[in-house]
Computed example of a mutant assay.
Amino acid sequence: MLVEKRETAGITQTELAARLGEYQSLVARLESGQRRVDVVEFLDLAMILKFEPDEILKRLMEVN
């Protein structure tokens, strides 16, 4: 879902990483599932990528 939201926003991994104050490799690990997103990062991602956090949480609950 993170890839979908990032691509919809028209942002590259490098651009997202810069806005988060992180390296591109962190974004790649988050998107591939190699690293979990913590709550603060999740809220930052929602703000940057302009999505409603509860929308994603509902989708995740449906999958599991």
Rank of each mutant, 00 (worst) to 15 (best):
A28P: 02
T8Q: 15
R36F: 13
F51W: 01
I48W: 04
E52K: 03
K58E: 06
D44L: 13
K58D: 08
D54E: 10
R59Q: 10
E22S: 14
G21Q: 09
L45E: 07
R59F: 09
F42L: 06
K5H: 12
G10S: 06
A46R: 01
V63P: 04
A18T: 12
D54A: 07
V40H: 09
E7Q: 15
A9S: 12
V3N: 14
I11T: 08
L16R: 05
R29L: 15
T14K: 13
V40W: 05
K5Q: 11
L30V: 02
A46P: 03
S25E: 15
P53Y: 05
L43E: 11
I48A: 01
G33R: 09
S32M: 08
Q13T: 01
L30R: 00
E7S: 14
E7M: 15
K5F: 14
V3W: 14
R36M: 13
T12H: 02
E52G: 01
A46W: 00
E22K: 11
A28D: 06
N64W: 12
Q24P: 07
P53C: 00
F51G: 00
R29Y: 15
E22C: 13
E4V: 14
V63Q: 08
T12E: 00
A17L: 09
L60Y: 09
L16P: 08
L26Q: 12
A9M: 07
G33C: 13
G21C: 07
I48Q: 02
E55W: 01
V39A: 11
G21F: 03
V3L: 15
L2D: 01
L26Y: 13
D44G: 02
E55H: 03
D44W: 09
L43T: 09
L30N: 08
K5C: 11
G21K: 06
S32L: 05
Q24A: 04
L49V: 01
Q24M: 06
G21D: 07
G21V: 07
K58S: 05
V40S: 02
T14Q: 13
V3D: 15
E52V: 01
L26T: 13
V40M: 07
V40I: 06
K5I: 12
V37W: 04
N64Q: 11
P53W: 00
E52P: 03
S25F: 13
Q34I: 08
Q13N: 08
V39G: 04
D54W: 03
V27T: 03
S32H: 06
L16T: 09
K50H: 10
Q24C: 02
E15S: 02
A46V: 05
K50V: 09
V27K: 00
D54F: 09
E22L: 14
M61Y: 11
E22D: 09
M61D: 14
D38G: 08
L60P: 06
R35G: 04
V37S: 04
E41T: 10
V39L: 12
A18I: 06
A28K: 07
D44F: 11
E41N: 04
R29Q: 15
Q13L: 02
D38N: 12
P53N: 00
E62Q: 05
K58M: 08
T12I: 02
E7K: 14
I11K: 12
R6C: 05
Q13V: 04
E52S: 05
V37H: 01
M47S: 12
L26G: 12
L30T: 05
